[in-house]
């Protein structure tokens, strides 16, 4: 099936009010993502500043982060970005069942990433080199940034769950699905933030 026009209603017309309102919401949502990006950037600045304030990195007595596990866990999150992309594509083309499956896959992968992060936290906090939030600048920057990102993933998972319920209830139609677009934007944003965090914490 082909892509329906935005704002198309059941009678073949176009709901002009919806088209314009959607335009406003889209722009507002993108600006929200920009300001959220600034929030992350500020903390990333803080991390890089502390990292370069002397004494080497990681600070004495702290174990290096395990890159193998993080790479695997990142791939889980990046995979969820790909499935979310195809969820939206399928919805646009009217393939509702496929959309639902991709959406569920996204939720599972997102939750899987959170589980992996919990596993890693568990290891860092209760492993042989105890590192926690307040124990030094390493813990401060690492747990604040990844924790903030984890919270974003968690909110994203909740949002997508709501999307599943709403879609099942038939809230979104062929021409009116801004909630799904916004969800996809948000989920991609969370993924892309993780690309940066993964690079600066595990690869740098």
């Amino acid at each position: 099936m082909s892509v329906a026009a935005i704002g198309a209603d059941a009678h073949g017309g176009v709901d002009q009010l919806y088209v314009e309102t959607r335009e406003l919401r889209l722009q507002g949502f993108l600006l929200f993502l920009v300001s959220d990006c600034v929030l992350f950037s500020s903390f990333i600045f803080a991390y890089l500043y502390l990292r370069n304030s002397g004494q080497g990195w990681p600070p004495p007595g702290i174990q290096r982060l395990d890159v193998a596990f993080a790479a695997w866990n990142s791939v889980v999150l990046f995979g969820s970005g790909a499935t979310m992309h195809y969820a939206l594509e399928n919805f646009k083309h009217g393939k509702f069942i496929k959309y639902m499956w991709f959406l569920l896959a996204t939720i599972v992968l997102g939750a899987g990433f959170l589980g992996g992060q919990a596993f890693e936290y568990n290891h860092l906090i209760f492993g042989e080199h105890v590192t926690w939030w307040g124990s030094g600048i390493f813990g401060a920057s690492f747990f604040t940034l990844t924790g903030m990102h984890g919270l974003h993933v968690f909110f994203g998972v909740c949002y997508l769950t709501v999307l599943v319920l709403q879609s099942a209830a038939g809230v979104y139609t062929r021409g009116k699905y801004f909630g799904i677009t916004a969800g996809t934007l948000y989920w991609h944003f969370v993924d892309v933030i993780w690309v940066v965090l993964f690079s600066i914490f595990y690869l740098l």
Partner: peptide
């Protein structure tokens, strides 16, 4: 203002939870 929010959040968690920034 979002950049300020980050600074304030850092100061807040440092004061309340002793997280060293």
């Amino acid at each position: 203002t979002t950049a300020l929010a980050a600074a304030l959040a850092a100061l807040f968690i440092e004061r309340q939870f002793g997280v060293p920034f």
